[in-house]
């Protein structure tokens, strides 16, 4: 089991055994991989991605990725640095549209509706699919304003003189929302009495949790998280992990992580990307970690390669 490319000859376990008997190594690898990423689950997918390709200029960053993401579950994306995890994540709420150099080809459906439809409403889409970025990016505003920013701009919370004059002041609702979101993100106890201070005064880890709270305040259906715990200490990390598990009851969570134990702990299914922007294997988390189809995946997970 030394040569990763020759997996197909030796790997005989798993539900795709019938396909591993083909002769030409390259071709078989291609076909087998498709099968390994063809993960079946009961129920309808929340997001279904079909033949997704991304180029940055001439750089082919994501190659023919297809995967269905089940509803109300946690999907972990793992893989070595630079393999395209963030790129893939950004495709799911069309944040890649904001990068000039990026060219995207393929299809992503949210509950059966194509999000790359030219007529799709980006603002609505991103309300439904929230995102937490790899590096914390709070607004230079107070903690409270950071949280209530989204709902306020969506018109769910009305404040200010006019709202007050018409008796529609939602200050009370805003305070409740801020408290609830911050508690969800395990930040409330630390910032309870400095809600009106500037968010840039928080530590990096606190800022990241604030960004999570800010995302939750909009109440999205899908939450995309790009290494949300990379700047956190073990205690805060475990709080975030608890939060993610909690969230998966109501939300669909897609989370990028470099921490294999974390992926194993919190996710229901795991997708492994390897260098070059390929999705190599996608399956139940237990399956990936205990008995991966691909030699390369096994090597990566056990730390031999990456």
């Amino acid at each position: 089991m030394s040569n990763a490319l020759d997996d197909s000859e030796t790997e005989t376990t798993g539900r795709t055994a019938s396909q591993t008997t083909t002769t030409t190594a390259g071709e078989s690898d291609e076909r087998v991989r498709e099968a390994w990423t063809d993960y079946d689950f009961a129920g309808t997918p929340k997001l279904s991605v079909e033949d997704l390709n991304v180029w940055y200029g001439d750089d082919h960053a994501l190659k023919d990725v297809s995967m269905d993401i089940p509803e109300n579950s946690v999907t972990a994306l793992v893989g070595p640095s630079g393999c395209g995890k963030s790129t893939y994540l950004r495709c799911l709420n069309r944040m890649n549209d904001r990068i000039k150099a990026a060219r995207i080809d393929g299809s992503v459906e949210l509950e059966g509706t194509e999000i790359y439809d030219p007529n799709a409403n980006l603002v609505e889409l991103r309300k439904r699919i929230g995102m937490v970025f790899q590096s914390p990016n709070p607004f230079p505003k107070s903690i409270r304003e950071n949280i209530s920013y989204g709902p306020r701009k969506h018109g769910n919370i009305e404040k200010g003189l006019l709202a007050r004059l018409f008796g529609r002041d939602d200050t009370e609702a805003e305070y409740e929302l801020v408290e609830r979101s911050l508690k969800q993100a395990a930040l409330w106890d630390e910032v309870e009495d400095r809600l009106d201070d500037n968010a840039l005064g928080l530590s990096g880890g606190q800022q990241q949790r604030l960004c999570i709270a800010r995302c939750l305040a909009v109440d999205p259906e899908v939450i995309l998280m790009d290494e949300p715990a990379s700047a956190l200490d073990p205690i805060a990390t475990s709080k975030i992990e608890d939060l993610v598990e909690e969230l998966s009851k109501e939300y669909t969570v897609v989370i990028v992580t470099h921490n294999m134990q974390q992926a194993a702990r919190i996710s229901d299914q795991t997708a492994v990307f390897l260098t070059g922007g390929e999705l190599v294997e996608y399956d139940d988390t237990d399956k990936i970690f205990e008995n991966p189809e691909s030699q390369r995946v096994e090597d990566y997970i056990t730390g031999k390669f990456g």
Partner: peptide
């Protein structure tokens, strides 16, 4: 910083409102 614009866009806020408020 572009991070502010990205953060606002990812919350489903339109470009004009982002410009105005961030």
């Amino acid at each position: 910083p572009d991070e502010y614009r990205d953060a606002s866009a990812a919350l489903g806020v339109s470009q004009w409102v982002t410009i105005k408020s961030v």
